[in-house]
Design a protein around this nucleic acid. Structure first.
Lengths: 341, 341
DNA sequence: GTGAAAGCGCTAACAC
DNA sequence: GTGTTAGCGCTTTCAC
């Protein structure tokens, strides 16, 4: 038998707290005390020995063991329809940062926008023992019963209607719709359409309600409504339809920046000028809205603050449920006619 | 003493495997057998009793305990510079799906594009005991020593140069650069510039190398190079510079779609027509590239396949390290002059 | 086909 | 200030 020249993996098993204790010549309890900074005090000399041993061994606490003991994984779950969509990516990013600031990791799941998949995702997160979950359904009402069944603190993120018994944070859609219309009216428009994203949730979308309200308050007739998906292609389809429409509105409120981007493409193809022929105000405030042509006037959601509030609601220890509502703020750019493009 | 009318939280502690065993009248081992489908067989009658008990109690296995016992968390980690950037969002989404298909959850961390933060992230993921990590550094070389130190299987994702001893998957940047130039040459361009994203990694970016190569092969002079950030604003700045440049190239290769989007905005502002005055070919193949104006001709990365390959490398059990290189494919749209905008 | 029991790595109450 | 130890919920070997 020939001797092995060299073992590729020296089979160095990960160091445990026990190894550290042995090397430092203390008990495992003491190691815990220094690693966790408590609950007991440790003499500086001992602490130094322990830290030394930790460094030497490259010791790293085992989160699974800790989670098992503590009954808390120090992880939060987030389910979004599709993180590929810029708004959710931005939101998830902000949530990740806010959670990390409080020592929580974020487990992200895409539901693909289906209720069944969302339910599965929640179920899955529950068995991972996340300490809480953020639910960003948009296309439908989340399954509140399921949420209650898994008994995990949850916050409905990006949810405009209040759900008693649940934390929620969202923006005031109605206000945003009204602001969009008001702004368009201030530019002299009297025929203002709406391109609305499709959702199967029962309630009327606040943006639509706000748009109507704005129109009524201004004494204007209700303009044409196009219903399409919430994405670029949805806007593109709506735009093509608008191109052939006999009585084209002089302005539209697009319920998402992505829809507006799609409109823009259709208008470019059809030779319709924005804002001269049709003015646009949209909603979301994505980075993309600033770089398309012309740049979009949009009602920007305060994503950072919403993320902060959501994390706060989940791990802030506040206790009772809260429904935080934020305001979108109008960002004036060229698509409405405010700035020269 | 007055009787409590109703306890708000009936203090229903989460059911454990023990509870299930008791209710079903079997041992805890048997419960494991049915939950995991092994390693022993269970009689149909017993299995039915167990499933019944599970349903009644709403039992859900505790992943932390399982992870502790098995030494595997069934989670994978992914660190990206910024998931807000469409390319990484798309990549992360694809990775999440591929991982989920194999039963792994994805722990996502944003490094903000700093080496130190990336190191911290890896450290953090290591202590969470992820079974593997995807590293997508772009702005710098990843810290390979650190990766070795934490002893977690890793794959360098979106990494163009091969790193011996590490799995990696990426696209052939050089080829893409050459293809971009070839295509522009086929449109008759002879003065082709480059807008390159900035990275602090030592090596010359393959896209730049490919661009040079393409030019040389075609016997053309090396056009102007602009170096800017990899984002929309980087492209915008480059575009403004180009506007005032005395010898403006008739075409440019943009090293990312986002850069191209920024160029487009600057060109619109400056009244430079695309593709008539300046043609553009970019790189990435984002959804956004199809909806800007004019739509971008771009070298699309096969994101799905890259994600699949990365997950496969990590959990496929293949064993030895591999370096998978994919090709970007040219998507012809209007910005190069191929299609009528 | 079923069960008893050891032990994964950690925390913290309790004893000294 | 430090050490001992029970036990978190699970998997699996080994006995029956």
């Amino acid at each position: 038998m020939v001797a092995m020249p060299h073992l590729p993996t020296p089979a160095k098993p990960t160091a445990t707290r026990k190894d550290v204790a042995r090397l430092a010549g203390v008990s495992t309890a003491v190691v815990s005390y220094v690693v966790n900074g408590g609950p007991k005090r440790v003499s500086p000399a001992t602490e130094a020995k322990v830290r030394e041993a930790i460094a030497v061994l490259g010791y790293r606490p085992n989160a699974a063991a800790r989670a098992l003991k503590l009954g808390s994984s120090e992880m939060l779950g987030m389910v979004v329809p599709d993180m590929t969509s810029p708004f959710f990516a931005t939101l998830a990013h902000a949530v990740e940062e806010a959670a990390a600031a409080r020592g929580y990791a974020l487990l992200m799941v895409n539901s693909g926008g289906s209720l069944a998949a969302e339910r599965r995702a929640v179920e899955h997160l529950a068995s991972r023992r996340v300490d809480g979950v953020f639910l960003s359904s948009v296309l439908f009402e989340p399954d509140l019963r399921e949420l209650e069944a898994v008994e995990i603190p949850a916050v409905l993120l990006n949810h405009s209607t209040e759900s008693p018994g649940f934390d929620s944070v969202g923006v005031d859609f109605v206000q945003a719709g009204r602001d969009a219309v008001d702004h368009l009216v201030s530019h002299g428009h009297r025929n203002i359409g709406l391109v609305m994203g499709i959702s199967t949730s029962g309630d009327l979308d606040g943006r639509e309600a706000g748009w109507r309200m704005g129109l009524e308050r201004a004494g204007l007739p209700i303009g044409p409504v196009m219903r399409q998906h919430f994405d670029r292609d949805g806007g593109y389809q709506a735009g093509k339809w608008l191109l052939n429409s006999s009585e084209r509105p002089t302005a539209v409120f697009a319920s998402s920046d992505l829809i507006a981007v799609g409109l823009l493409r259709a208008f470019h193809e059809g030779g319709v000028r924005v804002p001269e022929d049709v003015a646009i105000v949209s909603f979301d405030g994505l980075a993309e809205s600033e770089y398309c042509w012309p740049p979009l006037t949009t009602l920007a959601q305060p994503v950072e603050e919403m993320a902060q509030a959501a994390v706060e609601a989940l791990v802030g220890g506040g206790g009772h449920k809260s429904n935080r509502r934020f305001s979108a703020t109008l960002v004036r750019r060229a698509s409405c006619g405010c700035a020269a493009p």
